[in-house]
Amino acid sequence: MAERTQKQKPVPARTEETVDEAPSSAPQGDKLKAELDDLLDEIDGVLETNAEDFVKSYVQKGGE
C-alpha cells in the first residue's frame, strides 16, 4: 500500500459568476507539469519493455 500516498489536490470550486477568466490555474498548471515530467522520467522503468508484444498479446474474451 506504500505506493498509494498521492497528495490530495484541491480542485478550485466554481464560485458563481465572480471568478476571473484565467486566475490561479497557472501555478497549479506548472506544478502539475513538473510532476508529469517526474513521472515521465520514472515511467521508462515501469513500462512494459516490449510495448509491441505486450499490446499484441493482450487479448481478452468478450464478457458480461
Partner: peptide, 18 residues
C-alpha cells in the same frame, strides 16, 4: 499490480483511507 499500475502514479485524489 502496484509496481506497474500507472493510475497510481498520476496523483488521483484518494477518498477512502487505506
Amino acid at each position: 499490480r502496484a509496481e506497474r499500475c500507472l493510475a497510481r502514479r498520476v496523483g488521483l485524489e484518494v477518498m477512502i483511507s487505506d
